[in-house]
Structures are given as C-alpha cells and as structure tokens.
Design a protein around this nucleic acid. Structure first.
Length: 547
RNA sequence: GCCCCCGUAGCUCAGGGGAUAGAGCGUCGCCCUCCGGAGGCGAAAGCGCAGGUUCGAAUCCUGCCGGGGGCACCA
C-alpha cells in the first residue's frame, strides 16, 4: 500500500466515523495525510487527523482518535492502529500490503514517481540568461544546474517545459564588450568600464583569424560585434551543453528590437493608457502593480529603456502559448519581481503567470574567509573551472542540493584538492552497488520474487517505505519549485539502502539454496535501484553501473 | 531609510506546525571468513535574542541583533 492510498483510507475512515457520529464534515481538513514518524516505535506511518479535526468538530482529540482506531483496525492491509500522545494515530502495515510498493515500482519502471497534476501547465522556464560578454561564472552555473533540474522536476509531474536562455545582446554592455575586443586586437589597454579577462584576448585573436582585415574595415565595430558575440555564444552554449544543460530556445534581445516587437508592445501600452509621459520620458505605472516606483520605458532621448525589451519579451512568450513564465534570477535582480509582474498586469494579464524565483548568490571561500571574485587576483571561477575540478556530476549535485534561497559558499581549497567528499558519491555508490548486485544475481540465474510479504526485517520496511515516498517528494519539489528536495531525498534513500544491505543478505551464501526471501530481497533491490536511477535522472546526474 | 534572502552541530547545509531536530565533512571509539568498507554501528556537539498565535513553533506573526544582496531615463 502506498502512502497515498493509505492517506485515502484514513480520510475515508474519518469521513465515515464523523458522518456516523453526526459531526460536521467541514471540520475535516482537505489535506490530511500520513507521515513517517521519526521514531520507529510510533509505527510505520502516523496521522494527526484527529488533532487537526477535533476542535472544529467539537470533540476531544483522543476520543476522535479512538473512534478512528476502531474504524481502521482490521481494514485490509493495516496490521495495527493505536492512539498515542495527544491524539496521534500510529499505523502499522501488513508486510504483504507494504511490499506492494515494490511491485508498483517494478511495474512503473522509469515512470515511477511521475504524475500529471501539472499537465495543464505550458511552462517557459527562463534561466541563466547571462550576458554574452564573458564565460559563465559560478552564479550562472548554479542556475544552470538548479534550473535544469527544476525543468526536469516539472516535466516529471506533467508540465510541458521549454527551457529558454535570453541573450541581452542589445545595449551598452555589449558596446563595452565590443570596445574591449577592439582594444585587445589593437594591443591597447582595456578601456574604462571594459572587460579585461584573458578570454577577451582569445576572442579578439579569433576574430582577427576569421576576418583578417577586421581592424582596417570601415565596419570595424560591426565586424567585432557580429563575430565576437557569435564566438561568445558558441562558447557559452558549449559550456552549458558539456554541463548537461541544454536549452530549447536561445532568445536574442536584439531580435525584439529588429522585428519591431518592442515598438508594438510599447504602443499597445500607450494606447491602453498604461504609459504616461513625464519629463520627456514614457513611464509604466508599475506602482499600481506593487512596484516601489514607476519605471521609465522610453527614455527622454527616445530610446527604449531595458524594461521595454522585457515587456516585449513577455508578450512574445505569451504569444507562443505559455501559461506559466518562470524567471530564475539572482538576488541582485530581486527588484525585477515587481516590474515583471507589473508588465504582465499592464497587458491585462494575470500576474500569476509570471513567477520569479530569486536565488541567492554563490560566494567563494578560502581558509574560511570570503574572497571576492576578481580577475586580477585570479579568483574568477567559471563553469569550466568547477567542472574541471570536481566533474559534472559532483558540480551539478552540490549546486542543486541546497535551496536557492540560501546563499552558497564554495571552498576554493575544495576545488583545488578535487576532494571526493561529496554526497553525490554516497548516492551513486548505492546505485553502483545495486548494479553490481544485479550482475551477480543474473550470474546465479536469480529472478526477482513476488513473495514480498517475506520482507519483514525493520530495515526492509524502512527501505520500502522510503521508496514509497518518492512520488510525493517529486510532487512537492515541483509544486514548490525546489529541486533540492529530490537530492536530499536520494541521500535518505541511499542511506536506507546501505543500512539494509548491511544487515540483510540478498544473494545466497556459498552453496546455499536460493529461497523466496532471497528473491523477494532481489525484487526490493531492483526497485531501489530504479528509484535511485529515476531520482538521479531528475537531477541530471549520472547513475553509474560501476565506480 | 525602504525592499528581498539568510541566521540550526566545529564547517557546509536539510528540516513548507506535530512526538526524542537530521545528513555530509571534521573529531573520538568499534565492525571485514563470502553480495563493492566510496559502507555500517556508537560518542561528543546545535535551533541568534525577545515577545505573540496554537493543544503543539526550528517552521507562522511582530520587534531587535547579525550576515548577504538590491533600491538609475545602466543593462
């Protein structure tokens, strides 16, 4: 019996009891469920439904719990039900009912854990979107890992997801990038406010190699802009691809200006009265939608401000059919939340279609002290640096496993030591062990058994119940946009497996005969391996057969 | 000044109201005659402070303290 089914059973029982006793069913919360108690003495599962319902229903929690225990006792699959503490109901499952979770995993295979509650969501997931003025740094790398994992989580729960990268290839930063390239090509020092990294010289040299006459060309800046930005695009795309993060759409801000989309969007807002003119500029009444001040959309020199591109971009996304636009931004952009929602509202759209996830920044730490990323000090860490130091799996995993709400410290020493003390190995090792076990079992001609009621060792029960949690973990990770929950779950699952393995022999020893218990345990192992593989896939981390 | 995030073990982080707060790393001790010891078992060690809501608060609310990041007709 899965926890979801058990929760249904508990709800139904509560509903029956309350009806029979003439209690108001409205007192029964819609979201009552079961949880796994920390303390094994409190049963396999526990429910707090009595405590949550009693007051509104006008009865005492212990009384209600008592009636529920009576109702639940003897139901199919439930071995025992008892009252505990202030009104908890502790439940134990019959081992054969519990073992059914294993069969379910085996039957579902790769699909175990998936769901369809997000099937009506057509999601535009925009993340990374770093300016093409340099290689991706640790910050962008964090979003590349977490954003991609979020995309996979949403997909697993039924959403249609389009991953999108927005290149800000219009505007002043790009001009500075181009000026820096030209200066480097001429062997001149980096201009003020320019970009001075070594990659600038590389790219400048590549531009010259591709277009030998570039410096003398009358369209010099245009050549450097076109070729230089292209090279930067290619480099960023390649780095992301090598990192296991691929985008469906690479969107160029410039295209919005070239196509007239910006002008169209702005005119629409002018017509609908959402923009007003003041001091020679056109302003969006974003304060009416929660922003702390109105924003300039068209500057007094007639040029569009940055937000004009955002507005047109949002309209473009909506015109492509997306009904949920998720933006993953760094903490230094949190001021955007209000104006992005305001842009949606200004078009008469529901601001809820705009969801902005603000992630905190990545800090570098050395010897326990923070170090600033500095090109001169050689402490700029790029995506490639991180991958080179620890590998893609460990890099992705360590960036995904914490909530993006907390800022993250990355230890420079850890990178240089190429240390192996990453929890990803703990999880991957469990998978590799299971793969090895499967090979050995195959050599013995063993097949997974069906007498799953034989799995009555406490650690077998723990493992089965942990496996049973996976669908709910994926569902909450998707709902809350928190892929780190999947990583933490996998660590719990790996621990449950390692503990099981330590005390439950799966394969026969020596010339011992193969028993039903051996085969049942093998089935459990196949299921455990499946869930580890499914979970790792959701994180974009490999599930190795051997390590 | 205003806004956002964070403050949990020596360190890096989990814990979206529930019973005795967890993991990894680090420290100390124990466990290999057979399925992978990248493992298991045990020990020491913690919710910034003060109020409030609740049968029950690390979790929700308020204030304070501490850390990070924002508050452009830049992009």
């Amino acid at each position: 019996m899965t926890p979801a089914l058990l929760a249904d059973l508990v709800r139904a029982a509560a509903s029956d009891v309350m009806t029979r006793r003439g209690l108001d069913l409205a007192a029964l919360p819609a979201d009552v469920g079961v949880e796994r108690p920390r303390n094994p003495e409190h049963g396999d599962y526990a429910t707090n439904v009595a405590m949550r319902t009693a007051k509104k229903a006008g009865v005492s929690p212990r009384d209600l719990a008592g009636w529920l225990v009576e109702e639940l006792t003897g139901k199919g699959g439930i071995a025992s039900a008892e009252i505990a503490g202030p009104g908890f109901i502790n439940l134990r499952l019959a081992t054969d009912a519990q073992g059914a979770i294993v069969s379910e995993v085996l039957a579902a295979g790769d699909a175990y854990g998936t769901g369809d509650e997000l099937a009506d969501k057509n999601v535009n997931l925009e993340f990374v979107s770093a300016n093409p003025t340099g290689p991706l740094h640790l910050g962008g790398t964090r979003w590349a890992a977490a954003g991609d994992a979020l995309g996979r989580v949403l997909t697993a729960r039924g959403a249609k997801v389009t991953r999108e990268y927005y290149f800000n290839d219009a505007g002043a930063q790009i001009n500075r990038f181009v000026d820096s390239l030209v200066a480097a090509a001429k062997g001149e020092p980096t201009p003020d406010n320019g970009y001075g990294g070594a990659y600038i010289h590389d790219i400048a040299a590549q531009v010259l190699a591709a277009e030998p006459g570039a410096l003398e060309s009358p369209d010099r800046d245009e050549v450097f802009r076109r070729v230089g930005i292209d090279l930067m695009f290619v480099e960023i795309k390649q780095a992301l691809h090598d990192f296991g993060t691929d985008f469906d759409v690479w969107f160029h801000e410039q295209s919005l200006h070239d196509s007239g989309a910006v002008e169209t969007a702005v005119n629409r807002l002018k017509t609908s009265g959402q923009l007003y003119e003041s001091e020679g500029a056109w302003w969006l009444r974003s304060t009416e939608f929660g922003d702390d001040k109105d924003r300039v959309v068209i500057k007094s020199d007639g040029n569009p401000a940055y937000i004009a591109g955002d507005i047109a971009y949002f309209l473009d996304k909506r015109s492509r059919g997306f009904n949920l636009c998720i933006y993953m931004l760094g903490a230094d952009h949190h001021g955007y939340v209000g104006r992005l929602k305001a842009a949606a509202a200004a078009f008469g759209d529901d601001p809820a279609v705009v969801e902005v996830l603000i992630g905190q920044l990545v800090n570098l730490v050395k010897d326990g002290k923070p170090v600033r990323m500095s090109k001169r000090a050689g402490t700029v860490v790029t995506m490639e640096d991180l991958v080179e130091a620890v590998g893609v799996d460990a890099a992705r995993y360590s960036l995904i496993r914490s909530s993006v709400d907390s800022s993250l410290d990355i230890d420079l020493d850890l990178l240089t030591k190429k240390s192996n003390d990453n929890p990803v190995f703990y999880v991957q090792y469990a998978h590799a062990r299971l793969a090895s076990l499967a090979r050995n079992a195959a050599d013995l001609g063993m097949t997974p058994g069906t007498e799953l009621g034989l799995l009555e060792h406490p650690r077998e029960g723990d493992l089965i119940r942990t496996i049973g949690e996976f669908p709910a973990v994926l569902a909450s990770a998707a709902e809350l946009r928190e892929p780190h929950r999947v990583a933490r779950y996998l660590e719990t699952l790996a621990a449950a497996y390692h503990k099981f393995y330590d005390s439950c022999r799966v394969l026969p020893m020596g010339d011992e005969e193969i028993s039903d218990l051996h085969r049942a345990r093998l089935a459990l192992c196949v299921a455990a391996r499946q869930v580890l593989a499914n979970g790792l896939a959701v994180l974009g981390v490999s599930a190795p057969e051997r390590m």
